[in-house]
Computed example of a mutant assay.
Amino acid sequence: MGTSKLGGYMKIVLPILLGTAIYAFGLLYFIIPNQLMEGGVTGVTILLKYAFGISPSISNLVLNIPLFLLGWRILGGRQIIYTGIGIGSLSFFLWIFEKMMESGWIKTFATDYILASLYAGVTLGAGLGIVFRFGGTTGGSDIVARILGKKYGFSMGQIILTIDVIIIGLSLFYVAIENILYTLVAVFIASRVIDFIQEGAYAAKAFTIISDRAPEIADTITKEMDRGVTLIPAIGAYSKQAKHMAYCVVSRTEIRRLNGIAKSIDPRAFIIISDVHDVHGEGFRED
């Protein structure tokens, strides 16, 4: 394997390791000490910990083997390799943090359910979001979520939220209702953080301007804002007249300025503003 190819693999593997480390820390530092829950296979491992004292590092590895084999058939070779790395590294970091807590190197956080659920949501969501963004999973329901996302285009966060709510609902037989309610807060926050990381930290706004004076608006935006604009030919469905649409992506701080330019040139301009995420290219994020 060449140096450049190895470097490419490491750029994927290292973030997956970081993500599973954050996720494992959130489970052992915020979830388990406060008798909270999680969804999917991870939720089952936590229930086994509560009921029988079985180490999550062991049960996570054992329960994920069948799902790993299923993922191998559906997701493909390279992707499932990253999933295997995610499963193995999660069990490894769970074991590491367990030993650190047993030795007293890390003190558990078990004082405030509200703070615990908030921090659990952030850490678990950040960990999973990083893993997902670089093509891995931590096994369990994550494999199911990635399969459904690949086939039907559903949001990873939405799929995880749905599966987690079902699993957590079943845990009512073992965990107090108050703890389940706090868990739902953590799950919701985690799903938002996952989507935030998946879509990209940099969010912008896309302007679609429909106007008879679209070329003039585009020229003004280019000169005054130094932003690229694309002119798209269009035909009015009612008037049957040819016109242009101007399409431009700007940062959030430039929304008011661009809107003012368009309205000053054509007060009757039809303007559509929509969210865009993870913007790459000149003037935004350069890869």
Rank of each mutant, 00 (worst) to 15 (best):
T220N: 04
G157S: 06
V193D: 01
T162H: 04
E178K: 13
D219M: 10
G236F: 13
S264A: 12
S191T: 05
I180C: 09
L181P: 05
G40D: 06
G77A: 04
F188S: 07
L90W: 04
G77R: 10
K5A: 11
I114T: 13
Y113C: 00
F30V: 11
F270G: 05
G283Y: 02
I261D: 14
V13I: 15
I261N: 08
M101H: 10
I96S: 08
K223I: 09
D195C: 03
R73Q: 09
N60P: 00
G121H: 10
L18F: 09
G200R: 10
K49Y: 13
M101I: 13
L231R: 02
A176E: 11
L47P: 00
V187E: 11
G228M: 00
D112E: 06
I180L: 15
D275E: 04
G76K: 04
D278Y: 01
S171V: 04
I147T: 10
A246Y: 03
L14E: 10
S191R: 02
G76S: 07
S239E: 15
Y238A: 11
G169R: 02
L90C: 00
G283N: 12
G135Y: 03
H280D: 05
I143P: 03
Y174L: 09
A214Q: 02
S155N: 12
L94M: 12
A110C: 08
Y247F: 12
L115C: 01
N60V: 00
L90A: 00
G43V: 05
I189K: 03
D112I: 00
S117M: 02
G121D: 08
G157Q: 06
P215H: 03
I217D: 06
I147G: 06
Y29K: 15
W105V: 09
G281F: 10
G76A: 06
L231H: 11
K150A: 13
L70Q: 05
M100V: 11
I261W: 10
